[in-house]
Amino acid sequence: MTAAPAVRAAGLDRDEFAAWLRLLETPGLGRASARRLLAAFGAPQRVLAAGAGAWREVAGATAAAALARPAEVVDTRLQAALAWLDASPQHHVLALGDPLYPPRLLQTADPPLLLYVQGSLALLGADSLAIVGSRHATPQGLEDARAFARALGDAGLVVVSGLAQGIDGAAHAGALDSRAGTIAVVGTGLDTVYPKAHRALAARIAEHGALVSEYAPGTPALPENFPQRNRIIAGLSLGTLVVEAALRSGSLITARLASEAGREVFAIPGSIHAPQAKGCHALIQQGAKLVQEAADIVDELRGQRRPLAAPPAAEDTAPADADPLLDALGDTPATLDALQARCGWPTAALSARLLEMELDGAVARLPGGLFQRLHRG
């Protein structure tokens, strides 16, 4: 029997990829239910094989009914995604637990289960800083975003933003003139550019940086998706710089998510009379670091900029019943710090492996940051 062809850069065959898409793209299911099902049954194919009764027990009647219904949109998205992946060697998809999955994003509370990437995969693990701000920026704000992005890029920080009008676009443009490059995290499938005015900019980013989305090709610009992508912008980055923002702003959501993930938050001050400065001033009052030049950020992050260790090579990993990490875990729940002390793995590698084992049903995550080995019958 001929094996299904692999999906680029993910270590998935197409049947596995189809199972991921059914779990993630089924209308009415939702990310939280998908995570509960994966935690209970493991890989997506095992979830689908469990059946409606098991789905109902784990995720509730609404989620079970959604997954049981035929969904034409899933087939449409699958065909669009496969066509997109086949269109270029620079088109990739990464599943949670893949060795190439961004380590910093993996350490956040809600990492995407699948990531689509167009461009350089290497940038996803690089030292980076998010630059966000108003879509209705002032000329000075746009110039500040370009100048900071260019200077930070020349200092070796990849600039992450959201491809929106205003500050985001200026930050990407400035970073493209630097040596480090830029990552654009978008709220659509990567076969769509939104806003359309940024088509040329998106093409430059794809060539010299990376476009990233958790949404499958074929996903249009839906308003609810853009706040969700902010957690990815914050999660990929060592910190977030807010250039201009009103008091009620998506940029402040990104700053809050960065803070919740333990990342630094920076803000550029402005006139007390300018509406676009009020969000930055509020962040500074709440503890964000006031910055006047890029060097302020570079100096603040100096101690955090160290090479991220790659997870152990797949060929060096023992089978699940003789896994050295399971041996280190033993039969008593342990914290991440305790496991790190026992096995000596870097934090990023250890977190990636634990998530992979959790999805495989070998490890359970308990309240209080504890992990427990599960013995299979």
Rank of each mutant, 00 (worst) to 15 (best):
M1T: 08
A3Q: 10
A6G: 09
V7F: 01
R8A: 15
R8E: 02
A10N: 01
L12E: 00
R14P: 08
D15F: 11
L21P: 00
E25K: 13
L29C: 00
L38T: 08
P44Y: 05
Q45C: 07
R46S: 13
A49I: 06
A50D: 07
A50V: 10
E57K: 09
A59V: 12
A61E: 15
T62E: 15
L67S: 10
R69Y: 04
P70V: 10
E72T: 10
V73R: 06
V73W: 02
L78A: 07
A80I: 00
A81Q: 05
A83S: 15
L85I: 04
A87S: 11
P89W: 06
H91I: 03
H92S: 13
P99D: 10
P103G: 13
R104T: 12
R104F: 14
D110W: 12
P112R: 04
L113P: 07
L113W: 03
L115W: 00
Q118D: 12
L121R: 08
A122E: 14
L123F: 08
A126R: 15
D127G: 14
G133D: 10
S134R: 11
R135T: 10
A137G: 10
A145G: 14
A147F: 11
A147D: 14
R150K: 14
R150L: 15
A151T: 10
L157R: 08
L157Q: 06
V158N: 13
L163N: 04
G166M: 03
G166V: 02
G166D: 02
G169Q: 13
A170D: 02
T182F: 06
A184I: 02
A184Y: 05
G187E: 15
G187A: 15
G187T: 07
T188Y: 00
L190A: 06
T192G: 07
V193G: 02
H198Y: 07
H198I: 01
L201Y: 05
R204A: 15
E207R: 15
G209Y: 00
T219D: 09
A221F: 11
L222G: 11
F226A: 06
L236D: 07
T240A: 08
V242K: 00
V242H: 04
V243F: 02
E244Q: 09
A246N: 08
L247N: 06
R248F: 01
S251D: 02
I253E: 05
R256G: 14
L257S: 00
G262H: 04
S271W: 01
S271K: 05
Q276Y: 00
L283P: 07
E293Q: 13
D299C: 12
E300S: 15
R305K: 12
R306F: 00
E315Y: 15
D316S: 14
T317F: 13
P319F: 10
D323R: 01
D323V: 07
A328K: 06
G330F: 01
G330T: 02
D331F: 09
A334C: 12
A334R: 09
L336N: 04
L339S: 11
C343S: 11
W345G: 01
A348R: 09
A348L: 12
R353N: 03
L354I: 05
E356M: 13
D360M: 09
G361W: 07
G368L: 03
G369M: 08
R376Q: 10
G377M: 03
